[in-house]
């Protein structure tokens, strides 16, 4: 019985050593950057001006986006709008903007190189809850990009 326990213990230790040797180097380091746009205003179904933010220096030899998150600071009474995010490579993702301030995660950029200029703008949907003839949306967005390298 004692010998069996010893063998199991040795096997577990061997597995742990193997994990340390082979798995740990595969785990990539991670980093992120966070940038805030100017205040974005859009009215009557039109677009806001676009706001460009840059990533700053990006770590590593082969960085790859793992997550893109937006914090939206929404002005009270904002009418429905769509958020557009353009990556440095030019891929655009759009999502319906939240009506209250908070975080939203935006998918689709995973695997891209995060280095360069990101562009963000909004488009007012052209609809209002109360019959405003000029539906308007105002929001300031903080872009947070996480990446592995």
């Amino acid at each position: 019985m004692k010998r069996v326990t010893k063998r199991v213990f040795a096997a577990v230790m061997a597995c742990m050593m193997a994990c340390l040797m082979f798995v740990t180097p595969v785990l990539a380091a991670t980093n992120n950057f966070s940038k805030t746009t100017v205040k974005l205003n859009a009215i009557s179904g039109g677009e806001s001006r676009y706001s460009s933010v840059t990533s700053g220096s990006v770590s590593g030899s082969n960085p790859s986006i793992t997550k893109v998150e937006l914090y939206c600071n929404v002005a009270s009474g904002t009418d429905p709008y769509t958020i557009y995010v353009e990556s440095p490579k030019g891929t655009i993702k759009s999502i319906a903007g939240p009506t209250k301030s908070g975080n939203v995660t935006i998918t689709g950029f995973e695997g891209e190189n995060p280095s360069g200029t990101w562009t963000i703008w909004i488009k007012n949907k052209g609809v209002s809850y109360n019959g405003n003839i000029y539906p308007a949306s105002t929001v300031t967005i903080t872009l947070k990009v996480a990446y592995s390298y």
Binding site: G45, G46, G126, P135
Partner: peptide, 27 residues
């Protein structure tokens, strides 16, 4: 495309107008 975006919220009680539709179509 413009109407699809406007009706995304699925709320038929919301209001719009001609100018909003025209502006949206330009996109």
């Amino acid at each position: 495309a413009a109407i699809k975006e406007m009706t995304q919220n699925g709320n038929g009680a919301m209001f719009t107008n001609i100018q909003c539709i025209k502006n949206s179509m330009k996109c």
